[in-house]
Structure formats: structure tokens, C-alpha cells
């Protein structure tokens, strides 16, 4: 169980490695899930990919769009890199990873351009910039290049979901503070059926502009990290 593992495992990658080699199948997936969603969350623990995290989370819709795009790239890049891991020379691995990731990002970008044009416009430069998201190259280097395909793909999925969760919390909080809505314009991302997801919490003439600006993102991000650490501390003291 994840809880029993937690005490012995530090955040370091080698421990996960040992676990993967020794533990039975079931607990590997649980461990990967625990790592990606909470313990080693790319958004609030590793603090990777902060640039898009802070820049495009002004609405929950944008956050969800970027979250989906990043998750898709993470899963596919982890899969491809894990597939090719025996054929990639160690000295050339970084350029090769970047090329693989870049071609996948291009695919995602073209797909978004075709199917979710308005989200594509509002995310702007941050879709191509997924290439430089340290989180993706970090997973490729630290995990996918050393583990088998199924584990790598699952790790990519969990890391992507963890990242998306942080994006969504941040995006929703900022949107509520700045506009009083959640998921405003969601139909541009998911299609007309999703319009019911838009929630109007309050209406005000004056908007809290800071929340929509990058400094507000930094402050709210700090609060989210603080809350996460407090919960961890509470769990530790209980045990």
C-alpha cells in the first residue's frame, strides 16, 4: 500500500526504481499514481513547468486545455522514449528526447488548431512552448528512458494528471477571484454539450484584476503549495 511505502521512500528517483524492480505488479501502479498525483506532483512539489502554469491559468478552461495538451504529450513522449530506450545512445539522448517531444507537441498543436480553435488562440505561444516544459523532458530522462513501456505510459499519465489538477485548481481559483465564474467558455474546448459546466458564482462591476495577472498567479500558487505542505505535516504528525 502506498502508505506503508511512504515512510521508507524519499522523493528521490532511485527508491522508486528499487520498488519497481522488487514489488509485485499491483503496487507499482499504485506507487506511480501516488507519486504523480500527490507525493512528487510536478506542479506543487517538483515545481516544474512553472512558466505555462503561471501564464495561462487565468481561467479554468485555459488551464484544462493546457492540462490536456501536456498530459497527451507526456503520455506519448514517455511511451515513445521508453519504446526506443535501447536504441538511444546515452551521449545523444537529450537532443533525441527534444526532437521526439517537439514532433509530438507539433501534433498536439495542429490537433488543437483544428478542433479547439479558440482555446488554441487563447493559449497562444504556450502550446509550442510545451516542448520546453522541463516536466516532460524530466520524466523522459528520469523515468521513461529506464523503464518498460506500460510503466512509462502510466507514469506519464499520472504526472500529467497531477500537473493538470494543479493547473485546474489554480485556474479555477483565479477565475473565481477575477470574474466570478468557473469554466467560462468551456464549450470552446469541449463542444456545445459542455456549456452547463459554466458556473456563475457572483457578478460584480469591479473585477479583482490582480488574480488575472501573473503576480496573482504567483501568490495563489504559493498558497496552494503551503496548503499541500500543511496537509502533509498533519498526516505526518498523526502517524
Amino acid at each position: 500500500m502506498a502508505h506503508s511505502n511512504e515512510k521508507t521512500t524519499s522523493d528521490k528517483q532511485p527508491d522508486v526504481q528499487n520498488k519497481l524492480n522488487n514489488d509485485p505488479k499491483q503496487s507499482i501502479y499504485k506507487e506511480l499514481m501516488w507519486q504523480g498525483l500527490w507525493k512528487n506532483n510536478p506542479g506543487v512539489v517538483q515545481l516544474l513547468g512553472l512558466c505555462p502554469l503561471l501564464a495561462v491559468t487565468n481561467t479554468a478552461t485555459n488551464a484544462l486545455g493546457l492540462g490536456i495538451a501536456t498530459t497527451a504529450v507526456l503520455v506519448t513522449s514517455n511511451t515513445v522514449i521508453s519504446l526506443l530506450r535501447h536504441h538511444i545512445p546515452a551521449t545523444l539522448r537529450i537532443p533525441i528526447f527534444v526532437m521526439i517531444i517537439a514532433s509530438l507537441v507539433t501534433c498536439v498543436q495542429l490537433l488543437m488548431n483544428a478542433y479547439t480553435y479558440e482555446v488554441y488562440l487563447s493559449l497562444g505561444i504556450f502550446i509550442p512552448l510545451i516542448v520546453t516544459n522541463c516536466n516532460i523532458i524530466g520524466r523522459a530522462e528520469a523515468f521513461a528512458s529506464k523503464n518498460k513501456i506500460t510503466h512509462s505510459a502510466f507514469d506519464g499519465l499520472m504526472m500529467g494528471l497531477g500537473f493538470s489538477c494543479v493547473l485546474m485548481i489554480l485556474g479555477a481559483t483565479r477565475e473565481v477571484l477575477a470574474q466570478g465564474t468557473v469554466f467560462d467558455g468551456i464549450q470552446t474546448l469541449l463542444g456545445g454539450w459542455a456549456a452547463f459546466l459554466t458556473v456563475h458564482i457572483y457578478h460584480s462591476e469591479t473585477r479583482f484584476l490582480l488574480a488575472a495577472l501573473p503576480p496573482g498567479a504567483f501568490i495563489i500558487m504559493g498558497i496552494i503549495i503551503a496548503i499541500k505542505n500543511t496537509i502533509d505535516e498533519k498526516i505526518d504528525t498523526k502517524r
Partner: peptide, 10 residues
Amino acid sequence: VLLLISFPVP
């Protein structure tokens, strides 16, 4: 500054 940037009108 926070107030001026966030609520320029009031």
C-alpha cells in the same frame, strides 16, 4: 499598488 492595479476605477 495591489489596490491600484486591481481596482483602478474606485
